[in-house]
């Protein structure tokens, strides 16, 4: 669990409930030997700077290149995209749905990750502006992709940790264990 800045605490609690053993990552050495990595929501500029200052980028790339899963949520989607860590071939638009006042919730289907609908909380959320060839779009809201996957990297515009529904964390924990 990347813990440079943002809403990592609720992710940690959800992962624990899902039976995983979450570790907070603030330094490169803390990422060694972990089975998966979540990039949380927060302020993407702040998180990107924190990654740079702590020298975390090479460790995250090595984790990714070793085929270990990565999940980015909200700002974590931006951080995972082409403009930053480049783990997934997407470009994103920050605060795409508007400022804090324009935050909203919606019940959406996320193909291949959860059965049926899931409540998605969008807070100053980004959307996916463009996708490369290998990127699957798993969900759209207002005609913009809000959930995408390429290989072992999944990115969501919303905050799955802010609702009691634990299915996304269960799915990710199983993916990491596999």
């Amino acid at each position: 669990m990347l813990a440079v800045q943002g809403g990592f605490q609720r992710h940690v609690e959800h992962l624990r409930e899902a039976g995983a053993e979450p570790v907070e990552v603030r330094l490169p050495t803390e990422l060694e030997d972990l089975d998966g990595l979540i990039l949380p929501g927060g302020e993407s500029t702040t998180i990107n700077m924190g990654i740079e200052k702590a020298g975390l980028a090479p460790a995250i790339l090595a984790h990714h290149e070793a085929g270990r899963p990565v999940l980015g949520t909200c700002a974590g989607m931006i951080v995972a995209g082409k403009e930053h860590l480049d783990l997934i071939e997407i470009t994103t638009r920050r605060n795409a749905f508007g400022r804090q006042l324009a935050s909203f919730e919606d019940d959406i289907e996320v193909e291949g990750i959860v059965e049926g609908k899931i409540r998605a909380v969008f807070i100053r959320a980004p959307w996916v502006e463009s996708t490369g060839d290998g990127v699957e779009v798993l969900a759209e809201v207002r005609d913009h992709p809000v959930a995408v996957r390429q290989g072992t990297v999944t990115a969501l515009s919303f905050h799955p940790e802010l609702t009691p529904d634990n299915r996304i964390h269960l799915w990710f924990s199983e993916l990491c264990a596999a």
Partner: peptide, 27 residues
């Protein structure tokens, strides 16, 4: 999502930019 971050008081756009570049999560 401001948790784990620093919110800085600023009195103009120049200070706001300095705050953002320093890694503030809000001003």
């Amino acid at each position: 999502m401001l948790k784990g971050g620093v919110i800085m008081d600023v009195v103009d756009a120049d200070q706001a930019k300095i705050a953002e570049e320093a890694g503030a999560c809000a001003v």
